[in-house]
Design a protein around this nucleic acid. Sequence first.
RNA 1: CGGGGUGUGGCGCAGUCCGGUUUAGCGCGCAUGGUUUGGGACCAUGAGGUCGGUGGUUCAAAUCCACUCACCCCGACCA
Length: 567
Amino acid sequence: MRLSEMFGKTQREIPSEADTPSHQLLLRAGMIMQVAAGVYSYMPLGWRVLKKIENIIREEMDSAGGQELTMPVLQPVELWQQTGRDKSFGKGLFTLLDRRERTLVLGPTHEEVLTQMVSHHVQSYRDLPKLLYQIQTKFRDEPRPRGGLIRVREFIMKDLYSFDVDEAGLDVSYQKMVQAYKNIYARCALPALFVEADSGAIGGKDSHEFMLIADNGEDGVVCCEGCHYAANAEKAVSKKRKIGPEKPLPPEEVATPGMKTIEDVSSFLKVPKDHTLKAVFYVADGQVVFAMIRGDLDVNEVKLQRLLKCTDLHIATEDEVKAAGIAAGYASPMGLKNIKIVADDSMAEGINFVAGGNKPDVHIKNVNYPRDFKADIVADIAQVRDGDGCPRCDGTLKLMQGIEMGHVFKLGTFLSNALGAFFIDEKGNSQPIIMGCYGIGLGRLLAAVVEHYHDEKGIIWPLSVAPYQVYLCPLYREGSHVADVAEKLYEEMQSAGLEVLFDDREESPGVKFNDADLLGIPLRVTVSPRTLEKDSVEVKWRAEKQATLVPVAGVASRVKELIQSKK
RNA sequence: CGGGGUGUGGCGCAGUCCGGUUUAGCGCGCAUGGUUUGGGACCAUGAGGUCGGUGGUUCAAAUCCACUCACCCCGACCA
């Protein structure tokens, strides 16, 4: 490709709407362009990268036994009502009316359509297992698109669904996919951390995510420094610091005027935070729930939601708290009626806690469980903190940020039951097909590569996904034969099967080098009067500082060797 | 949806507080001509803007008021 003819220009200045490195660089390099919030076009360079990623994924899916197919974006809402997932997706579902006023959804994923398809084409255990996948556009009306390509509302995703006769079969499919995913990240040169994850609204047994540790990640990742334990912060558990037990003292009211927060109470009464009880009110599917936890800890809402098995969970508003007859800031589990109490197991230790007095300006000292109050549920609902103890070994947990590059999970039979996807087993009995699903967002993966591979000058593409392999960079000067040599090299390298981006523009060296660095093409070949004096060209890896001279005569084959050696 | 912020040529910004010397500027980019060519060159000339939108206040609005839209960032969703 001649740069002079290519659609898309580089930009010198950082677009003001972008503040994640991948977003800034992809915009500046002219690889993507925003159309609306969370909606992007891919320009030729960006699209080439996306296709390379797509091919890597396709190859790995195929060699793991996957069969590719395609399904419609437009789906009848009735299909979603059958599984109830229209509700669990809620507002995230893009819907529209057709001319007959029928509601259609823009598919946010394709389990429903595919399960229905499978239910028509699988009758016997002999038809299983099957691994079916698609690479196509999905739509989700995200509450907040973010970070350029990292979180968008229209995105291309590879989704594979597995269909098995039993749990053992599902385990095999799952392992195949985990391995295929590891291969994919390895081929994209990305270090992927394999972590335990929350399986979300559908439930299911196991779930794992592949995380890229990155400052701009939107997920918390917990990882043990001593063993292999690693989990999404939503799911992670830890050994909580033991405080008690202490000898129980009799409860005692104390005046705490204006002291509403744990911080206030703790410093006012000169009691450490871990000797207080924090009360947090939630509304779970319309019902007020009282979550209680030791004052030094925070509630993990995902854990709470899973525990309550509710679809909607939010912090109660002041009005909702008031309506439930609770004194905000002074709430206590003691004497509360008709409100479900969920307590973190940290408060079950015998400690003389300070808790709210259930009336303004009063707290109660020496509150102990279960002597002074009861909880409907006692379980782990705490957020893991950096430095907590590992649940598996004696190590310490580290809390980091990560980008979710892929998610695999075991769905079980929820969907096959809802959509009637059954098979006849060896004994002639009808059984629901056991499912799993495995997704990778391609644009997100592309962004993850840039997040991981860039410097202050620009992108540094790994060879496997680079839009072009070679940046041919002639520095023209009147009276030299740089132009002729460059044209000849362009032909030769292309004939040798190399992907060459030829910067044939009449620009100054600075402009060319800076664009080469910004675009991140792995290998730069510079031809100039200076190199031609030595009958050579200069060859330099984008990722390295030094350049080497290569004789003009054998450039194409030498470059080819260099590229091969890096693969 | 709650909290914060921004909308001025393709991009980055100034001007807005305190309405009128502003025919709305600057830098980058773009066009034409010339001089340049190893890390974002220089000179000259030029094109390009209903100041996000609507309504209002006023003799007069980019500037004040009201409403509205879009986008970004922080929290509830997920590849």
